[in-house]
Design a protein around this nucleic acid. Structure first.
Lengths: 237, 237
DNA sequence: AAGTGGTCTAGACCACGAC
DNA sequence: TCGTGGTCTAGACCACTTT
């Protein structure tokens, strides 16, 4: 009963196995519903005891990443369906998780000198970057995104193609978000928002305001309007 | 390497240990900050291997019930109903924090056989307890609370005076909330809610649905309507 | 029958904190 | 130094599903 040779990385074996499986899911090598290698196979692959593999897979199941069925096997879980306030998720991921098609229409992508936006980003002077995008799920508009971006944090923002990648995904990919502040309102949309979201007159919006920090900089300040009939927020504490 | 004698209950040993610790916390025998018996002690008490105790305590830490410090010990975690993001706060406290006066009007306080409520509380049969209360800030209504309560968790609920203490405060005082699930909607209020909240016709509501757990019981399921013009949610991540 | 996951044992080595 | 938790091993028995 001797511990095997020291691993190069100071990371527990079960954690390495978890990351290995997660990486395969993120890369698309493993898709929802796919069979994950069995405990026995992972034992051989990683040269560890079965308890260690078992813990890794059990924790991934507790995290909602995998489903395990005794006698059958381990499967990649379908993605979660409800958006959450607690996590800064990507509208495109949420839509994809529901098995639906996401599309984005870029209404504006420009520099701006709006003093309110400059203040919200806690900058002294402008210009700042500004984008307005309508996100749709299966062709039905579900979010009107009005976003201001700190050029010091994302200098290449205006050069991106936000029909291919959402601003949120782009920013998360480039910089780790360290803090976020949000406010949630029920609000009647103005005429422009109502039209872009194809809403009935009188239907309210669920409005989410969010500012996120990267280091000491306010990276972005965004207002997200959602038609009340087609969207809600959810989460657990 | 023989498995020990068959347990009377068909429940894993680690699960029994978890329930034992949770029961002590719920009964008040263990309070936040208290030291939980060490792995070695629990190994002796339950006659199991250390890995089994370790798993039980590790899972309770993952659930936020315990804190574990290597070299020091295992401790009961502080109650978290105010530390997290969408805080499970008391409307009366929030109003008091603004230096304002809170008042409550109890519209109903009764037993109910509503099958939806019974299902929401994950009970087999009713009756369950039901209350409807309008909360006001400086005399201005700010929240319409429609709450169902699990009688197994709060048997004395109907005997309380909720003009003096809010249901939320009463429940938090009696039992530690361990988990909460919420959903947030923008919604047009029905006529009754609109009237009690003294809202203009056409003004939307911010509707917060929340279920909270005490141990393995759904303790309460509540719908909170707020006039959009006078209320919003906020938090940080 | 063979393979899967679920649980458990009785040890072990280690990093860390309190004393 | 001693006790604590963190991880790991190399087996084992079991319930269950698939073939």
């Amino acid at each position: 009963m001797q511990k095997k040779t020291v691993r190069s990385a100071p990371m527990p074996a079960y954690e390495q196995i978890k990351r290995h499986v997660l990486a395969q899911i993120e890369s698309g090598a493993l898709r929802p519903g796919d069979v994950v290698p069995s405990e026995t196979e992972l034992v051989k692959e990683f040269g560890v005891a079965r308890m260690t593999v078992s813990r890794a897979l059990r924790e991934l199941m507790a995290e909602g990443v995998l489903n395990r069925v005794r006698g059958s096997g381990t499967y990649v879980a379908p993605r979660q369906y409800e958006s959450t306030v607690l996590q800064i998720r990507n509208i495109a991921d949420e839509i994809a998780a529901r098995g639906h098609r996401h599309s984005a229409r870029v209404l504006a992508l420009e520099a701006s000198d709006d003093p309110n936006a400059i203040a919200a980003l806690e900058l002294g002077t402008g210009p700042v970057f500004h984008s307005r995008i309508v996100h749709s799920e299966e062709g039905e508009p579900i979010q009107y995104e009005d976003r201001y971006v700190n050029p010091e944090v994302f200098p290449e923002y205006l050069a991106q193609d936000f029909t291919a990648e959402t601003p949120n995904h782009y920013m998360v990919r480039l910089a780790p978000i360290q803090r976020a502040e949000f406010r949630i309102y029920a609000q009647k949309p103005d005429a422009r928002v109502r039209q872009y979201l194809e809403m009935e007159i009188g239907e309210p919006c669920l409005l989410l305001l969010r500012r996120t920090w990267v280091g000491r900089h306010v990276a972005t300040s965004v207002r997200l309007w959602h038609p009340a009939s087609r969207f809600h927020l959810a989460g657990t504490v």
